[in-house]
Simulated scan of single mutants.
Amino acid sequence: MKIDIAIIAGGYSSEREVSLRSAAFVMKCLESTAYQPWLVDISDNEWKVTSHKGESYSVDKNNFTSMVGAQKIAFKAAYIIVHGTPGEDGKLQGYFDMIGIPYSSCNAATSALTFNKYYCNQFLRSEGFTVAKSHRLLKGDMWDSNEMVESLGLPIFVKPNAGGSSFGVTKVKELEQLDRAIKLAFDEGEEVLCESFMGGREFTCGALHFHGKLTAFPVTEVITENEFFNYEAKYVVGKADEITPADLSSEETLEIQSLTKKLYRSLDCSGIIRADFIYDGKIFRLLEVNTVPGMTETSFIPQQIRAAGYTETSILVAILDELLN
């Protein structure tokens, strides 16, 4: 008898479709294992389970079960692949904590902290990480573009403070662009982060605690023809080169992996996380932390898993085994 596992995807953010693509890949990886994956699609209006025949059934949120025809499905664990709210901000984690269902990602407190880029960076700065200088704006705040540029310099990265990193992000190169960029970021949320530009090569590194050991995966370098690694660069074929393992010396690779593991411990992470860095040839500066990284076949983490000599299926099974044993 297979163990029923919920693969939770969708969500309320602009990254909903990417989340569903990640979920489809995770489910494919688990098909021939001891686990029976069920897609649980979370939207503004409802939570629904999709059967293997494509039929939809409602989820009872009181106990996280579903009647699929005459069969009652009681999920034993949840694999969270919701990008943005409520999968990365701690809301789903708090729900599962209350009803006693184990889940794959960081806990509610860690998720809430890492989802707020400003607070997370201030904490990580106190832990010794090098991060960009920044200003946070709340909806309704007034700002002086001249003062912002004087303080942060140009270019300035403007992005939603809480949310994914793909939507509402602008690289502002001229003063006249700043107001529009801030307004665009406010379309994605209630808070906006304006950060000083950090030049250099961009790298990303995943990490996971499994088999009793914290492991950092091989590093990926991201090279894009775009101004920065935005939504188009991430998801449009040919817009970026992703080199795994990255062309770094063994010492540089070890340094970024050590920083990623230090970050994992500092934030008390669980499951798979990904840390993004900028490297100017001297210092690895932290860009941001992603506690629910993408899991499509071409996403960074699957690339790094394969480069490390594992299969995606073996890693997913290890995560679920650890949750349930």
Rank of each mutant, 00 (worst) to 15 (best):
A233V: 08
G238M: 11
V292P: 05
F300M: 13
S22K: 14
S249K: 13
C29N: 12
T114C: 15
K117R: 07
I42G: 02
F129L: 12
Q71Y: 13
L214K: 10
L137S: 02
D187K: 12
L323A: 00
V40K: 00
Q257M: 10
V192L: 10
N161W: 09
M198I: 15
G212I: 02
E251M: 09
P160Q: 05
S258L: 01
V131K: 00
D241F: 10
E191S: 14
L184V: 15
T170A: 15
V40L: 04
K282F: 14
D321V: 04
S13V: 03
G189V: 05
L320W: 00
D179K: 14
S250T: 14
N325K: 11
V131N: 06
F96N: 05
R16I: 11
S22I: 09
S51V: 04
G238V: 07
L287E: 13
K117I: 02
E15D: 03
Y57K: 06
R180P: 03
W47C: 01
G69T: 01
G128W: 05
G199K: 10
T65D: 04
A307K: 03
P218L: 10
G87E: 09
T65F: 02
I278E: 11
M148V: 10
Y103I: 01
K173N: 15
A24F: 04
K28N: 10
G206E: 04
I80V: 08
L152D: 01
A216K: 06
D276A: 03
I301N: 10
F167N: 15
E176M: 07
G69Q: 05
V26R: 03
A70M: 15
E252M: 13
G200H: 07
V149P: 00
H211S: 15
T65S: 08
S13C: 02
S56G: 01
L286Q: 12
L254W: 09
M142A: 15
S32F: 12
G189W: 02
A70T: 15
E312I: 07
T85C: 12
A9I: 15
L248I: 09
S43I: 02
P160Y: 06
E288A: 06
L152P: 00
I278N: 06
V222K: 02
P218S: 06
Y264M: 01
Q304M: 09
C194R: 05
E88D: 09
Q304G: 07
L137C: 01
A132E: 07
Y95A: 03
N161T: 00
G128C: 04
I42F: 01
T244N: 01
K239G: 14
K183H: 13
K133E: 10
S104Q: 01
L178W: 07
A307Y: 04
A275C: 14
T130C: 11
A162G: 08
G164I: 00
Q257Y: 08
